[in-house]
Simulated assay, not measured.
Amino acid sequence: MVETRQNFEERLTTLGRKHAALGNGYTTTLRGDGLIVLKPKRRLGRGFPIRGLLALVTGFFVFKGLMLASLGDITYNERVAKLQQGGHLEQFSSHLMQIDPVTQFAAGFLEPFVD
């Protein structure tokens, strides 16, 4: 009787793991004998969200390009120079906001749409 209960608990645990794996999505395949089998989809990038980081960096460069296109080179550089005069956080942000090739490209692309 005890062995039957342990076997039942093991089967429940296995089914629970399979059910949890299917929670992320699954694909169905038809075997040769006509049985439909569900296979869980793999979770890519389980660790750090690479797409989110890429979207954040892209958005930052688009923002910089939009600011450069709307203010112009001279005004933009004056504002970055004002940031350079401030505290540690402002100095760090001034290094991030300096004009680079990606920002110039984004500004050139966005300039016809500004104003």
Rank of each mutant, 00 (worst) to 15 (best):
R42Q: 10
V80C: 03
L96R: 06
T29F: 00
S93I: 07
E3S: 11
R42W: 03
P49C: 05
N24Q: 14
T4Y: 08
E9D: 15
K39T: 15
H19D: 09
A69N: 01
R51Y: 13
H19A: 12
E3N: 05
G34E: 07
S94M: 02
I50M: 13
M1Y: 10
D115K: 14
G47M: 05
L83F: 04
G34I: 11
V80K: 11
F109M: 13
A55D: 15
S94I: 03
L35N: 15
L54A: 13
V2R: 08
L15C: 03
A21F: 09
R11P: 00
H19N: 13
M67E: 05
E78Y: 05
M97E: 01
G87T: 06
T14L: 15
G72E: 04
L89K: 04
A81T: 01
D73T: 08
F63H: 12
E90D: 06
A69W: 02
D100W: 07
G45P: 03
T29A: 13
A106L: 09
L22N: 05
H95V: 09
L89G: 07
D100Y: 06
V57E: 13
S94F: 00
G34C: 11
M67A: 13
D115C: 04
L44H: 07
M1G: 08
L53M: 14
P49M: 09
F109K: 13
I99Y: 02
T58D: 10
L68I: 06
F113L: 12
F60M: 07
F48C: 07
Q98K: 15
E78R: 09
H95N: 13
F92E: 03
